[in-house]
């Protein structure tokens, strides 16, 4: 029980020798924990998630799920991709998209589970529409429903709220926190939004600019349940936000400095 569900042990990855993307990334996630990884755009967050999902293997280091190494995605892992509109099957209705990963169970149970997942993301009314008939926020919820319907233990979210409007974003944040707590999921959220990371997570992992490594891990002890207004106004939230902000800004300045060096 106390064994971490995910361990990143000095993971490095490069698409080409000249441009390393990940450099010695190490952190771990306990079962049931909500971890947010913050890093600037292009720093390699998606690459890291693809290594964690075993969609590709790191060059060095290890990704351990419950202490085991995987060459294919572990059965208890689910992922919501950043490009949600490309990750839904355009030839399947919302209902069938959600049911995509459910096999080897009888039809009645499958229908029930799909219905439950659709309810969890408030999408029952759109079950028979096609993904391309939905708004961005609804597509994202459809992708979310598809990944929770298989009852995973570890859920990876790749900037799931990056391209929706502010109000939708807030609704989605509440929805995701609610689902993760109810299903006692271990969730790994990747984002470039500092407020979002601090607001949602038990632990924030700050990544540097490329090649990405872990700058600092920050425990977030804000009480649950969290509220968009009261939590975000609490001194503890502001303190943590300040701390993460400073780290990220420091990274950005270092990056700018390095660029100036290169130009000289």
């Amino acid at each position: 029980m106390n064994e971490p569900i995910l361990v990143m042990d000095a993971v490095s990855k490069a698409y080409s020798a000249a441009a390393p993307i990940l450099k010695d990334i190490s952190f771990s996630q306990k079962a049931g924990e909500f971890v947010a990884v913050v890093g600037p755009s292009g720093c390699g967050k998606t690459t890291m998630l693809r290594c964690i999902a075993a969609l590709m293997q790191p060059d060095q280091g290890q990704v351990l799920h419950n202490g085991m190494h995987f060459f294919d995605p572990p059965p208890w892992l689910s992922i919501v991709f950043q490009d949600y509109n490309r990750s839904l099957f355009p030839w399947l209705s919302v209902r069938r998209n959600v049911a995509f990963g459910l096999r080897d169970i009888d039809k009645r149970e499958r229908d029930e589970r799909v219905q439950t997942a659709l309810q969890a993301v408030a999408l029952e009314h759109a079950a028979d529409l096609y993904p391309w008939q939905l708004s961005g926020g609804m597509q994202q919820r459809c992708a979310l429903a598809r990944s929770i319907v298989v009852q995973p233990k570890l859920l990876l979210l790749d900037e799931p709220f990056a391209s929706v409007d502010a109000q939708t974003r807030i609704d989605l944040q509440d929805m995701v926190m609610d689902i993760c707590k109810k299903m006692s999921l271990s969730t790994l959220l990747v984002t470039h939004d500092i407020d979002e990371a601090v607001f949602m997570a038990d632990k924030v992992v700050v990544l540097s600019t490329r090649p990405a490594h872990v700058v600092e891990e920050i425990a977030v002890d804000l009480p649950w349940p969290r509220d968009q207004l009261t939590t975000k106004e609490s001194p503890e939230f502001l303190r943590l936000r300040h701390r993460v902000y400073t780290l990220v800004r420091h990274q950005a300045q270092k990056h700018a400095g390095a660029n100036r060096e290169e130009l000289k």
């Binding site: 995605p73 059965p75 689910s78 992922i79 991709f81 490309r86 990750s87 099957f89 995509f100 990963g101």
Partner: peptide, 24 residues
């Protein structure tokens, strides 16, 4: 990306051919 979804959902290669590649 759809093929990666199929991998995460642990479809076998014949299943991927039939459920993802064929319709696409």
């Amino acid at each position: 990306l759809l093929l990666e979804v199929a991998r995460v959902e642990r479809l076998t290669i014949p299943e991927r051919l039939f459920r993802v590649v064929l319709p696409a």
